[in-house]
């Protein structure tokens, strides 16, 4: 039982990192990306290959993942500079689908749908951290560092400029802000941090394949951010916990026919998304109404 809860907590922690990093561009910079799972995947594949081929430890593998992810994120930054709103959503969707094809076809690196098996247990500075409790501690430490980093970024002049762009791009550019550079940096920061989640995920499962980085995962991360509350620091963490706990709790519902249980879970999950958006669109952790938001954010 304890192992199960710890494993669930690790998954929540990994997804919380994804949600928090997506929120950084979605909530603070107004960049709506449907391709977040791709950077999760790039982090996971890079870390796995680094560990399997070069015997890298967790820190080195994660750093490699962040680097590769940050560079490839330029492919997402490029359309972000050209277009906004629905067009960017579609561009990120295109990137998601293209990258997924590459993930499944570049078999010498990614193993295709067969995936990479036998990722070695994680080591950190010479210590084995594969014990579930230690790994949970590692996950939470990563989450903590990323939360602190994002909090610092949001409160810096960089973060204020991003919010200015989100609220009115034309005005921000008139004020002499380098919109293109700021957006590119925001996307790079978000994507590199998302790669940390990928590295944790690869070491945690010791198996990864393309199915963990599909469009549905990107949408699920968005759901976490929206359900928790965009533009808040802790909202996405809460959202990640809820989105992962809900199906886990639903399996405890009694009297469901076993063959229908999967469908019923998915239906309740979908229904919860709908109801929440109708009755609490600012997210559970967000401010109650737009009035509050204005008062709280001068």
């Amino acid at each position: 039982m304890a192992t199960y809860i710890i494993n669930l907590a690790i998954l929540i922690g990994i997804n919380a990192i994804l949600a928090v990093t997506l929120n950084f561009i979605l909530g603070y910079a107004g960049i709506f990306s449907l391709a977040h799972a791709i950077f999760f995947g790039i982090g996971a594949y890079t870390a796995a290959v680094a560990a399997m081929k070069f015997g890298a430890d967790f820190a080195a593998a994660t750093a490699a993942g962040m680097l590769v992810s940050g560079v490839i994120s330029l492919a997402l930054a490029l359309p972000a500079l050209r277009v906004r709103g629905e067009y960017f959503v579609a561009a990120s969707l295109g990137l998601q689908m293209l990258a997924l094809t590459v993930f499944s076809e570049w078999k010498s690196v990614t193993g295709g749908i067969g995936g990479l098996i036998g990722i070695p247990p994680p080591r950190l500075f010479g210590f084995d951290v594969s014990d579930p409790v230690l790994f949970l501690a590692l996950t939470l430490a990563c989450l903590g560092v990323i939360l602190i980093a994002i909090r610092a970024l949001v409160r810096s002049s960089f973060g204020r400029s991003l919010k200015a762009i989100r609220d009115d791009e034309t005005a921000a550019s008139a004020l002499g802000k380098n919109v293109a550079l700021l957006k590119t940096l925001a996307v790079m920061v978000s994507s590199s941090f998302a790669a940390v989640a990928g590295s944790l995920f690869a070491f945690f499962l010791s198996f990864i394949n393309v199915e963990s980085f599909v469009l549905e995962v990107s949408v699920q991360v968005i759901a976490m951010v929206i359900i928790g509350g965009t533009g808040t620091l802790l909202g996405p963490v809460i959202g990640a916990a809820i989105v992962l706990l809900l199906p886990a709790l639903l399996t405890y519902l009694p009297y469901l026919p076993p063959t229908e249980i999967g469908s019923i879970q998915q239906m309740i999950y979908g229904l919860a998304m709908v109801l929440l958006m109708i009755f609490r669109p600012s997210g559970l952790w967000g401010y109650g109404s737009s009035q509050d938001r204005k008062r709280a954010a001068p």
């Binding site: 759901a223 998915q266 979908g270 958006m277």
Partner: peptide
């Protein structure tokens, strides 16, 4: 998100 929930 709401529309996605409906499709699910």
């Amino acid at each position: 998100i709401a529309a996605f929930g409906v499709s699910l």
